[in-house]
Structures are given as structure tokens and as C-alpha cells.
């Protein structure tokens, strides 16, 4: 059973400025399946379509062509969002709220029943290590604390599918280790986890399968067997599969 299915999905961004229309390709006929209960890593260079794919899953974008199915429902579908937890690459939280108020808001939006809400908020904040900062404003949180508050809002409603966009980018080594442990903990509880990353070593450690995106297409998928115990196998496969689309050349060493 698939938790996520992309079927020939294309996304073209159209922008109009002073009457001039420009188009750029976000996804180009993407076919991708993520199975229930697995940890799937989405790898790719900047502009390869990772974030576009995630935005299509979350219903923030509409596909230009093709279909996106999540947990058996065609997206965009507001109802299915109650079964998904999503943490973006940066914590886009309202800084005027306290940690408690922020999580209370997301618990209400995620349909956590009102009588259980307060206890859930406190236990989740404690779980992500912010029990001491419940009543502090988010404007006083450090970057690491904000990232944890963002993880808390993604998990407060015990979702079936967890999507993490670049979850380790900009974190210190200790926090990276904790995020890794969290992903494995989610997997042990039968959750499906999709995360995007640039960090090949991180992906190697936690993923069951990976998909390499290049130019909006799925260039390659690999299973754990193909890289476990084979140093540099994933890195080499990645380098062979991707093509730079950001207009920059290689660093020359001559």
C-alpha cells in the first residue's frame, strides 16, 4: 500500500511581470511511490523539485499535470491533512505567541479534541525538550528551539504520515543526532516518514529507500541494500544521477 503516489506529475510556475510571462519547470512528469511504514529520503540539488513535491503533497500547490495521491486521497484534500504532520525547513511560527499558545493553536487546527489538548501540548513540548520554555514567547526562542517547536506542531496530532523538509539543515551535531533518533522512533511506531535533504550521510543512516530528483524528474530510486556496507555507494550514485540546473559551474581546482 502506498502512502504517497505521484503519477506523471508536472508543475510549471508561471510568473507575469509587466505583461511578460515567464515559465519555469518545478516538476517534469514525476512518478514516485512512498510505501506505508517506510522512511523515504528525497535527495536532490537546489531547484531539483524536492520542495515543490512536498508542497504538492500538502496541497499548497496544484499540479499542472498528473495526480498526487496521499493516504488514498487525491490532493488537494483538506481532510487528509489531519493525518499528516509537516515540519518545514525553517520554523514559520508566529513569534508573538508563547510556546504553549503556539502548540495549542496547532492542536486545535489539527483537531485534537479540546479536553485532551492541554495535556497533549505539555507532553509534546516536554518530548521535544521545551518543557521549561512553555510560557516563553517564540520571539525569545533560539533557532534550535524554534525548530523543535516546529517538530512539536507536526507531531501533536499523532499523524500517520510525517513530512520533514530539510530537518537537519542548520542544526548542530547533537540536534542532528536527536532528529535522527526521532525519525527512527517514528518508524518504530509504524509511521511513514518522508524527508528531503542534501545531507547524504544522514539519509544513509535512517532511510529504507531514497529517491534522487534531478530537473523535476525522479532520476533514480535506491533501497538500503544498495548502499549499506558499501562506502560512498550512495554519494557516487547521487553524483552520477544529478545534473546541475542552478546555472553554476563546478569549482575548478587547476
Amino acid at each position: 500500500m502506498n502512502a504517497i503516489r505521484f503519477q506523471k506529475v508536472g508543475k510549471i510556475y508561471r510568473r507575469s511581470h509587466l505583461g511578460r510571462l515567464t515559465e519555469s519547470v518545478g516538476l517534469d512528469g514525476l512518478d514516485l511511490d512512498v510505501r506505508e511504514g517506510e522512511v523515504f529520503g528525497l535527495l536532490g540539488l537546489n531547484g531539483s523539485g524536492k520542495t515543490t513535491a512536498i508542497k504538492l503533497i500538502m496541497g499548497l500547490h496544484l499540479p499542472t499535470t498528473g495526480d498526487v495521491e496521499v493516504l488514498g486521497r487525491r490532493m488537494p484534500d483538506v481532510e487528509v491533512l489531519a493525518r499528516i504532520g509537516y515540519a518545514p525547513e525553517a520554523a514559520y511560527l508566529n513569534k508573538s505567541l508563547t510556546g504553549r499558545e503556539n502548540l495549542r493553536l496547532f492542536a486545535a487546527l489539527s483537531r485534537v479534541p479540546a479536553p485532551a489538548r492541554e495535556a497533549k501540548v505539555e507532553s509534546m513540548m516536554t518530548k521535544v525538550g521545551l518543557g521549561h520554555a512553555l510560557d516563553k514567547r517564540l520571539s525569545e526562542y533560539s533557532k534550535g528551539m524554534l525548530q523543535r517547536a516546529s517538530l512539536a506542531q507536526a507531531l501533536i496530532h499523532d499523524p500517520e504520515l510525517v513530512i520533514l523538509d530539510e530537518p537537519v539543515t542548520g542544526l548542530d551535531p547533537l540536534a542532528i543526532k536527536e532528529v535522527r533518533a526521532l525519525i527512527l522512533w517514528l518508524k518504530a511506531r509504524g509511521k511513514t516518514v518522508l524527508f528531503s535533504s542534501h545531507d547524504i550521510s544522514e539519509v544513509e543512516k535512517v532511510c529504507d529507500r531514497i529517491g534522487i530528483l534531478s530537473g523535476g524528474r525522479l532520476a533514480r530510486t535506491m533501497t538500503q541494500d544498495e548502499w549499506r556496507g558499501k562506502p560512498d555507494a550512495l554519494e557516487n550514485a547521487f553524483a552520477a544521477a544529478v545534473t546541475r540546473t542552478d546555472g553554476v559551474g563546478e569549482i575548478r581546482l587547476d
Binding site: G59, L60, V78, L81, A82, I84, F106, R111
Partner: peptide, 8 residues
């Protein structure tokens, strides 16, 4: 962005 990724 974050609010609309919830069932809202």
C-alpha cells in the same frame, strides 16, 4: 504556509 498545511 504552516497553518494551511493543517486541515484548515
Amino acid at each position: 504556509f504552516l497553518i494551511l498545511t493543517h486541515p484548515v
